[in-house]
Amino acid sequence: MTITQLNYVLAVAEHQNFTKAAQKVFVTQPTLSMQIQKLEDELDIQIFDRGKKPIELTDVGRKIVAQARNIVNESDRIKDIVDQQKGYIGGEFKIGVIPTIMPTLLPMFLSNFTKKYPKVKLSIEELHTEAIIEQLKEGHIDAAIAATPLEDEEIKERVLYFEPFVGYVPNNHRLQGKTKIDPTDLDVEDILLLQDGHCFKDGILNLCKMADRYEEDRFSLQSGSFETLIKLSNEGLGMTLLPYLHTLDLRDQDKSHLRMFTDPIPAREVSIIYHKSELKMQIIEALQSVIAGVVKGAITFQNVQIISPISK
């Protein structure tokens, strides 16, 4: 049994196709198939049910894949130990970022990071939180930036910053005359929300539940972007809530509709998260340092109340 064979097994389990798996690990399909067959012969079991389309894991195959992932991760730690000993920060690093953070945070730190750590080859993908957790556990990404806490024992979190919720209140709205709003002012019936799958939406719903201003399925309209929500709000269809960093680049006429919350300000906790196996920690720590440095000047709020991103 070899680490290479286990990597081939993981690739087939991911793609459910021998040809695609071979492309993923940069070998020919016959080579990959032969090595997996050798492993199955050695263990005297079938890892894959080749009669199914797409290929499926057998019952014992699922257990083997789970263990193979642990073994491959642990073998990767050896290279990590050597890199850390040498002070080397480089190589490929795959990171996921949730959609409500990607457009505002990425421009703030990416250029600084790539200049400071030119040997790191970042691969960045926009993913919802559910997909991020799954891909971290399966080893498809190395880390992610997401709203926390996630309360998952397999995921570790390092807080980067706290980002306040900001009200966007259009003309002629019942809260338009207020200079600051309170969570008890919110009514989910007139708040425009992001579509399902966005943890920012779950945070808003949790905020409304805390204020006892929530009834299941009573909101009127959902959209996929903050820009659309702002336009709909300007049309008089309701207010909305925005993350603080998103408000910094609004037009002046739109900024006039912003309302901060009273203290303690409801906020989301934004963290860099990674698997408990703690691979590539030198890159994770470098990312944490750069991001915290650039955000420190943009967000200076202290008295905040963390709103959970977990749907409750």
Rank of each mutant, 00 (worst) to 15 (best):
E153V: 09
E134D: 08
K209A: 04
V294E: 15
V65A: 03
E216F: 13
T129M: 13
I306L: 12
P107I: 01
Y88S: 00
D44G: 13
T148C: 05
G203K: 05
I89A: 01
V295S: 08
S233V: 02
V25I: 12
M108H: 05
T58W: 09
D185A: 10
I3F: 00
Q282N: 13
K86W: 01
T28S: 15
A66R: 11
Q67T: 14
H246F: 14
L193M: 07
D254W: 11
V304R: 09
P164S: 07
P264V: 13
A298G: 02
I55T: 10
R174K: 08
T262N: 15
M210K: 15
K86D: 07
F219V: 02
N112L: 07
Q282A: 11
E134S: 13
S111I: 09
S225N: 01
I71A: 09
F226H: 14
A298P: 00
L32R: 01
V65W: 00
E216W: 10
D187P: 00
L237W: 11
E215P: 04
S123T: 14
A292W: 05
G177H: 05
K180S: 13
V25M: 03
V82F: 07
L122T: 09
H198C: 05
E74S: 15
I306G: 08
T129R: 12
V72Q: 01
R50L: 12
E151S: 13
I95D: 00
L32D: 07
I181D: 02
Q37H: 08
E189M: 04
A22T: 10
V97T: 05
L175Y: 01
R62P: 01
V169S: 04
T100F: 03
D196C: 05
T28C: 11
F226D: 09
K280C: 10
I204R: 00
I306H: 07
I230L: 10
L279R: 14
I272T: 10
L150F: 02
I78P: 00
I155T: 09
Y244N: 04
T184N: 10
I181N: 06
D217W: 14
F301D: 02
M102I: 08
P243D: 01
K79H: 09
Y88E: 04
E126Q: 15
K121W: 01
Q282Y: 06
L221R: 12
G177N: 12
E40V: 03
I299G: 01
L32F: 03
V72G: 03
A13C: 09
K121P: 08
T300Q: 12
L150G: 05
E134R: 12
D83E: 12
L241R: 02
F200T: 08
E125I: 13
M108W: 00
L241E: 11
A292L: 08
P54H: 02
L245C: 06
T300W: 12
N17V: 00
L105Y: 07
V295D: 00
K63C: 04
D44P: 03
D182Q: 03
L110C: 02
V166R: 11
N7G: 13
V304F: 07
I284K: 12
I36M: 02
A144H: 01
H173Y: 01
H15W: 03
I95K: 07
I89Q: 01
I155L: 10
S225T: 15
Q282M: 11
T247Y: 06
